[in-house]
Design a protein around this nucleic acid. Structure first.
Length: 202
DNA sequence: TTCAGGATGTACT
DNA sequence: GTACATCCTGAAC
């Protein structure tokens, strides 16, 4: 098993967002290991991006995590009930991060389905299967990612990213994985940053 | 199938 | 008091 290390997260944030596609997000909770393949990401860059919580060097209690070391998990609550999972990228202090927008369960889908819908994977409706983890709030719900994990450092056993998990039969993605590029979702307030093409999916 | 509207609580003005 | 990097439900088609 090859974990993503600090060097990976030190990359430029847009590059890291692209490189995270097809990698494995591993969550260990309540003695259960769950794995999903990342299929959609967005880049947020503190210095120049009005959509980023830390735009222009803004430091508050909430944004403090964005100034932590690359690879740190940044989890915040949105709309009063949903969590969003990010990983800090770039040089420490750049206050940039990649939002994990969606993924596909590839190991222990039963445990994910129970957290998401309260039923086993085989009992999900067609509608539930289609809407399994295709959004940041849904992904966090399925993996039990809450603000308790905010500021979790790189190297934690509870939540980490991997290039491959051969012991589970999960291979490394190709280096030239094709992907799509577009505008980010849900940032209508961000003026010129609305049009930055920093959303990636495969 | 698409669409409008409400839920919900924390951070920040 | 207002805004928010969202999701679910129910109604209309």
């Amino acid at each position: 098993m090859a974990r993503l290390d600090e060097k990976f997260f030190l990359q430029d944030t847009v590059t890291a967002a692209q490189e995270l596609l097809g990698r494995y997000l591993v969550r260990v909770d309540g003695g259960e290991t769950m794995v999903c393949r990342i299929t959609e990401t967005e880049a947020y860059i503190g210095a120049i991006d009005k959509a980023c919580h830390a735009y222009g060097g803004r430091r508050t209690k909430r944004t403090e995590t964005l100034y932590a070391a690359p690879g740190t998990a940044y989890v915040y609550l949105i709309y009063g009930m949903y969590s969003c999972l990010n990983f800090v990228t770039g040089q420490e202090g750049a206050a940039s991060a990649v939002l994990i927008r969606s993924g596909t369960p590839v190991y222990n889908a039963d445990a994910v389905a129970r957290r998401r819908f309260g039923v086993a994977a085989a009992e999900m409706s067609a509608y539930q299967r289609k809407n399994f983890m295709n959004g940041p709030g849904k992904l966090c719900r399925g993996l039990s990612v809450t603000r308790e994990l905010n500021a979790l450092p790189l190297g934690s056993g509870a939540l980490y990213l991997a290039h491959d998990l051969p012991e589970l039969g999960l291979e490394r993605r190709p280096d030239d994985l094709p992907f799509h590029t577009g505008k980010r979702i849900g940032i209508d307030y961000a003026e010129e940053a609305i049009d930055f093409p920093w959303r990636f999916w495969c």
